[in-house]
Design a protein around this nucleic acid. Structure first.
Lengths: 151, 151
DNA sequence: TATTGTTATACTCTATAACTATA
DNA sequence: TATAGTTATAGAGTATAACAATA
């Protein structure tokens, strides 16, 4: 394989387009769900990582603490999350899933997957291998610190 | 290469995560731009495809006509797009770029690319080849008709 | 009747600015 | 002083419902 010199600007353009279109497709599917985009991401994060502070959630989502405060407000008001005090630091609040939150997260993931998994099933094995590798590379890129930002 | 049986559900989960994180990163970068996410996508579409009807724009973005109507309202109010009548069908309205819209689109694309292209430059040639192929596969999937939807 | 587009209204998500409480 | 979190307010983006104009 040569150093095939894929032009960075073309690659960038095509990836942005592809990613944007798939993301918006996901969002459209989730529009009929009881919870929105950001709210579902929070539930998934808490399910995977356990009880989280507000700061941890806002850092992870790359939104301001005040944005996240409002998102978790909606989630606690709706009974999906509960607040609990951090015994070691009175400033901190830990957010954890209720039974309802856990169930909602599980069901939404299952529903949202239907369309996407259907499409993935139609791809070839070789294409799926490409996509799997791409997923890892994209996640690494997404988590890379911004210039001037400490890791 | 064996028929390596990548589990669809794992692949789906990892791709959704990777795509979601990169997309939100883009959105965060664009937050300081003069135009938002949906508005920029409209400008890009019109730049690439020429004057578009409202229905064409809403179909492409997979939002309702009324959502798109409001987005183009903001864009025409801001002087980025102009309306013109379709001579062959009095119901139709064609939206096209103004000079300002053209310039804004060009500059925003350039700015938004800085971070992403920097990261892509840090990847290996082989990784870039994987991402390029993935971009094409993702776009094909994103454009696939929903079950029951006509192509 | 069907298609194209708009307006009214409401919700999610995000931001900045100003604030309280704890370390 | 610095950190963790909240509230007030505003704007983008989306949806549904109800509507007008043209085909």
């Amino acid at each position: 394989m040569t150093t095939s010199a894929i032009p960075i600007d073309e690659l960038s353009q095509q990836l942005r387009t592809g990613i944007g279109r798939v993301y918006r497709r996901f969002r459209a599917l989730r529009a009929t769900d009881e919870l929105g985009d950001a709210a579902m991401s929070v539930l998934t994060r808490v399910r995977k990582e356990g009880p989280q502070t507000l700061t941890a959630l806002s850092d992870d989502a790359r939104v301001t603490p005040s944005s996240m405060s409002q998102t978790v407000n909606r989630l606690t008001a709706g009974g999906y999350l509960v607040r609990s005090a951090d015994p070691t630091d009175g400033r901190r609040v830990l957010f954890e899933l209720t039974e309802s939150g856990r169930r909602t997260e599980r069901e939404s993931i299952a529903r949202g997957r239907a369309w996407f998994e259907g499409e993935l099933t139609r791809a070839t094995d070789e294409e799926r291998a490409v996509l799997l590798r791409a997923a890892g590379i994209l996640e690494r890129i997404a988590d890379a610190p911004a210039p001037g930002e400490r890791a």
